[in-house]
């Protein structure tokens, strides 16, 4: 069917043109969820991490001695975690500002789409790398803990276990992550490709 015919049919469609009433009660019910829109929730989460990430790192440092009960303590290890938290802080602030700056009523659709996609794209990548680094970090921690507890006899077993774990995680986690969240990541990638095409068309207009 020709698009122009579809357009004519769309505009003639009687049911669309009829004024249909929704009860005011239902709209008031919806308004009770004020502040709970999808964007509002994302902003709240980003805001929370903006303030909480360094205190979480500090808390971890202060409580980490509880996990080295065998004696001996490697303060550099929890401090490394704190350093990662401090380095992530600018990213959290950037993500918060990216979302906070969105105004649906004045911004064009392309710009809103760009910002939201950027946010989700960065977040997914951080999640994935975070899981990989987290497992490696915990594996090393586990090694240090058992080395202190059981002495050198068990060290080689632990080292081999650690290497196998790190390699498995390094290969397994990204592909498992992609498979588990395939639809959602795929949706983000498709939208990014579409946005790139829009940008390229816009650039061609200006050349």
């Amino acid at each position: 069917m020709e698009p122009e015919e579809i357009k004519k049919m769309w505009q003639e469609n009687v049911l669309i043109e009829e004024k249909q009433q929704i009860s005011d009660l239902k709209i008031n019910e919806m308004l009770k969820n004020q502040g709970k829109s999808a964007l509002a929730k994302l902003i709240k989460t980003a805001n929370f991490y903006r303030f909480a990430i360094i205190p979480l790192g500090l808390l971890f440092c202060l409580l980490s001695h509880l996990f080295f009960v065998a004696g001996g303590y490697y303060p550099v290890y929890p401090l490394l975690f704190l350093l990662i938290c401090i380095l992530l802080e600018p990213l959290e602030i950037y993500l918060y500002r990216l979302l906070k700056g969105i105004d649906f009523s004045t911004m064009p659709v392309k710009e809103v789409s760009e910002r939201i996609l950027k946010y989700h794209h960065i977040l997914r990548k951080c999640e994935m790398y975070g899981i990989v680094i987290g497992v490696i970090y915990l594996s090393i921690w586990y090694y240090l803990y058992y080395k202190l507890t059981f002495g050198s006899e068990i060290v080689w077993v632990i080292i081999i276990f650690m290497i196998v774990m790190c390699m498995a995680v390094g290969f397994f986690v990204p592909s498992a992550y992609k498979k588990l969240y395939y639809r959602h990541i795929n949706q983000i990638n498709e939208s990014l490709r579409e946005l790139k095409e829009f940008d390229e068309s816009n650039d061609n207009e200006y050349e």
């Binding site: 249909q20 239902k26 919806m30 999808a38 969105i102 789409s113």
Partner: peptide, 23 residues
């Protein structure tokens, strides 16, 4: 365009679809 369902706990949704038909 900005609605991504993952990681969003939905608030209680008020159904309006029985009241309105588009086509």
């Amino acid at each position: 365009v900005s609605y991504f369902r993952k990681n969003i706990r939905r608030p209680k949704c008020v159904a309006i679809t029985p009241e309105i038909k588009v086509y």
